[in-house]
Simulated assay, not measured.
Amino acid sequence: MTKLKPVKNLLIGGPSTGKSTVLEALSDRGYWCFPEISREVTLEARQLGIEHLFLDEPLKFSEMLLKGRIKQFEEAETLSTGQVFIDRGIPDVTAYMTHFQEAYPVEFKNANENYRYDNVFLFPIWNDIYTQDNERFEDLELARNLQAALVKTYRDLNYELIEVPKSGIQERIEFILKRIQQK
């Protein structure tokens, strides 16, 4: 008998849109979740003396992100669970690189085509919850521009984007869970 692969549910959106908070709540409910790895990469670089790896060495930062996100995707494929939730996906890397007009190798584009998610939930920019911190360098205007780049990238890759409503955490979770049960 062939083992079914888990449904890979991706959470995308600009900075500070509530993705990580919802992911933590889904994890608390017992769902298998993969957190955003960019903060981990940024903190690792700071320990090596590089204050803003994405700003200083965008290609190196993006290569590290791509490698980590591919690893998450491949690990998700091996799990014995029905649903997996992932905070940010492989195409986010090229969306950011394109937005900042940075060149990237063809392997980045190939990864977008070779690793496909089942559902993509888009968290809209929401002024009321937007915050900046030591790892989040983007101001609200840049966050809006990055959101537009993400939407364009995912749509160009023929993903259906499911917009998550601006509401409380529980309402957002219920929206997502109801949507995945409909498929």
Rank of each mutant, 00 (worst) to 15 (best):
S38K: 15
L150E: 07
M97G: 01
T78G: 08
Y115A: 01
R88C: 03
P105V: 05
Y31G: 04
S38I: 08
G89Q: 10
D133F: 08
Q147G: 08
E51Q: 14
R116S: 00
L55V: 07
F34P: 07
L142W: 02
Q132A: 09
A45H: 10
S80F: 12
E113H: 11
I70Q: 07
R39H: 05
A95R: 13
K109I: 06
R116I: 06
E135F: 11
F34V: 09
I50D: 01
W126I: 00
V106N: 11
K152R: 14
I86R: 05
W32C: 11
W126G: 00
W32V: 14
H99W: 03
L65V: 01
P58Y: 00
R69D: 03
R69Y: 08
E141T: 12
R46N: 00
L79R: 14
A111W: 10
F100N: 05
A148D: 11
N112L: 05
V84Y: 02
F54K: 11
N127D: 14
A148K: 15
P91V: 02
N134Y: 14
K71N: 04
N145K: 15
D118E: 07
I125A: 14
L79V: 07
R136I: 07
A76T: 08
K71P: 09
I70L: 09
P124R: 01
A111F: 06
T153G: 01
N127H: 15
R46C: 02
D128M: 09
A76K: 10
D139R: 10
F137P: 10
R46S: 03
G89A: 09
K60C: 05
L150Q: 13
K60P: 08
T131V: 10
K67P: 04
E44Y: 13
L150M: 12
A143P: 03
V120E: 06
E102K: 15
E77K: 14
N145F: 05
Y117G: 00
Q101R: 11
F123W: 10
E57R: 15
V93T: 08
R69V: 02
Y115T: 03
Q101K: 13
D139Q: 09
N134W: 12
K109Q: 09
Q83G: 02
Y31T: 06
N110W: 11
S38C: 10
D92L: 04
E135I: 15
G49H: 10
L65Y: 11
A111G: 03
R39G: 06
I125W: 12
E57F: 13
V120A: 03
V93G: 00
A103C: 12
P91I: 05
T153Q: 15
F121E: 02
L122A: 07
A76P: 09
R136Y: 03
K67I: 01
N134S: 14
E77A: 11
F61T: 03
L59P: 06
R69T: 04
N110H: 13
V106D: 13
F85H: 01
H99P: 05
G49V: 08
Q72E: 06
P58G: 01
F137T: 12
D118G: 06
D118A: 05
L55P: 09
D139H: 08
N134D: 14
N134R: 15
L150A: 04
V151L: 09
D139F: 05
S62T: 06
V84W: 03
E107L: 09
F54D: 02
A103P: 14
E135R: 13
E113W: 13
R88V: 00
T94M: 04
I125Y: 12
M64F: 13
R144C: 08
G82L: 12
T42P: 09
E74S: 12
E135Y: 12
N127P: 10
